[in-house]
């Protein structure tokens, strides 16, 4: 029983990490229909941004959110405008471009760091909480809370704000949105920027937990793609709930089956859900059909 509680806690905390990483990815995937392979690298940049603030400016890593997230939004806007927008009628080329971006960002960071790993080790990152037999770190709890807040804030933003409504309109029907006077390119640009900023937020909040390396983004993104497809394209709630499904699956498989097989189990669940419901748990039926075809 003691270990069962520990495994459930682990699954929820891990789910928080996956949910946080997936929310931004799902926004870009669901609205612009770009399979953005560089999303993990934006997360990695967020981590290094937090490390820079911590080591050079002596800032607490959580405070660097105020600098890193706006910087990543700006980077996303620039990347969309310079790289993705010119390829908007070539969806496959956008995918290749995002892969090129992945390699570019990894190699730039490699060249700067020379391959050395870095860590953030603050007093807060060392604090572990005990609730009866269950132990967990404060850093992971912060990620869980942040994932819930980010998902809620994004949901409200999409539902209430003008830009959010425009994003939803473009996601539902790009041509109809254009006919209604919505500037599709500007909407895509802000969507990509917000998605990138969310990756930056995830990077900052995860930086006190992990040792930073230029390839670390890839460790999160495979699972995040599973979360996005599992939860449903373009669905904020789907990304959030999907994160917990993947987190709990990983925790149970890792403890009760074998840590080496946990990723295999995640993708068995992933394929099983897709076979039963191709649009994902929270996606609109048929949403998986539009995507690339809509842009061609």
């Amino acid at each position: 029983m003691e270990q069962l509680l520990n495994v459930i806690t682990l699954g929820l905390l891990l789910g928080g990490i996956y949910a946080l990483v997936s929310v931004g990815l799902n926004l870009i995937f669901g609205v612009i229909r770009i399979i953005n392979f560089a999303q993990g690298e934006f997360l990695m940049l967020g981590m290094y941004g937090a490390y820079l603030g911590y080591s050079v400016l002596a800032l607490d890593p959580y405070v660097t959110v105020l600098i890193v997230v706006p910087a990543l939004i700006l980077l996303g806007v620039v990347v969309y405008w310079l790289v993705m927008r010119p390829l908007q009628n070539e969806p496959m080329m956008q995918v290749f471009a995002s892969f090129g971006l992945l390699l570019l960002l990894q190699n730039i960071v490699l060249a700067i760091t020379g391959g050395l790993s870095f860590s953030i080790n603050t007093p807060l990152s060392q604090v572990a909480l005990s609730l009866g037999p269950v132990q967990f770190s404060v850093s992971r709890l912060i990620v869980l809370v942040a994932a819930a807040l980010a998902a809620a804030a994004l949901g409200v933003f999409l539902a209430r704000s003008t830009v959010g409504k425009a994003i939803r309109a473009v996601a539902q029907d790009r041509r109809a949105a254009q006919l209604m006077g919505i500037n599709v390119q500007t909407t895509y640009m802000w969507t990509f920027g917000i998605g990138t900023g969310l990756a930056g937020l995830a990077g900052v909040l995860l930086s006190p937990i992990y040792t930073l390396s230029p390839h670390i983004g890839g460790n999160f993104v495979m699972a995040a793609f599973a979360v996005v497809v599992l939860g449903g394209l373009g669905s904020v709630a789907g990304a959030f709930v999907g994160g917990f499904i993947v987190g709990l699956t990983e925790a149970f498989a890792g403890y009760y089956i074998d840590p080496e097989l946990k990723h295999a189990v995640i993708f068995i669940v992933f394929i099983a859900v897709l076979l039963v419901r191709p649009s994902g748990l929270f996606g609109k039926v048929g949403a998986e059909e539009v995507g690339l075809r809509e842009q061609s």
């Binding site: 270990q3 682990l10 460790n219 999160f220 990983e250 925790a251 890792g254 403890y255 840590p259």
Partner: peptide, 20 residues
């Protein structure tokens, strides 16, 4: 002996098993 992927996002399961 127990193996894990070096790229794992979480290794709490490995520690819990060792703890047992």
């Amino acid at each position: 002996t127990a193996g894990h992927k070096a790229s794992s996002v979480d290794l709490t399961d490995a520690i819990l098993r060792a703890k047992d």
